[in-house]
Amino acid sequence: METLNEYVAQIDPKQRERMQEVLDWVKENFPNLKPRIAWNQPMFTDHGTYIIGFSVSKKHLAVAPEAVGITQFADDIVEAGYDYTKQLMRIPWESPVDFSLLERMIKFNMADKVDCTTFWRK
């Protein structure tokens, strides 16, 4: 699997529309980010460094902005009605996507990692 379209095509049809909506939104709003599939999940990078990734489970869409991003937005995640772990937030399939929160996470990571020369934060 090499493209986002191939990834989306192979996931459960019940989850496909939501995942496509989120991936299209990122591509449209952050055209400078490079989409890729790694570790069997879609993610976006900027100058070779990880910015955000997504994955699916039976009950939710997972958004992974790295632990620093989760810590930075923990209160906002709860306010949006989502829960989170150290590395990701969970958006239940039946809940709307808070695109404003997603935008803030992406912009934060882009700014925080502007001088980062590695894929992951050190």
Rank of each mutant, 00 (worst) to 15 (best):
Y7D: 04
Y82R: 01
I70F: 14
V78A: 15
T45Y: 01
D112S: 11
A9T: 05
Y82V: 00
L33P: 00
H47R: 10
F99T: 02
F44Y: 00
Q72T: 05
A38K: 02
A64H: 11
S57R: 04
Y50C: 02
D115T: 08
Q72A: 09
D24M: 07
R104F: 02
D75S: 13
W93K: 03
A111Y: 05
T71G: 13
R90I: 09
V97W: 14
L88I: 10
N109Y: 06
P96H: 05
N109V: 09
T71A: 10
I77K: 14
E2Q: 14
M19D: 06
C116H: 11
L23Q: 13
P31A: 11
A62R: 02
V63L: 09
E28N: 04
P65V: 02
M110W: 01
D76V: 15
R90P: 02
D98M: 03
I70C: 04
N109C: 10
E21N: 14
I77M: 03
M43F: 00
V68E: 08
V68A: 10
V78H: 14
M89D: 01
R36E: 11
Y82M: 06
V68T: 10
R36I: 14
T3Y: 12
K58W: 08
R18T: 08
Y50L: 07
A80Y: 04
T71K: 15
L61G: 05
V97A: 12
Q15R: 12
N32I: 15
F119W: 11
Q20W: 05
F108K: 09
T45H: 02
W39K: 06
V56M: 14
G69Y: 15
K86Y: 11
Q20M: 07
L88T: 02
E66L: 13
W93S: 00
D76H: 09
F44R: 00
R18Y: 07
F54S: 03
R90Y: 04
T118D: 13
W93H: 04
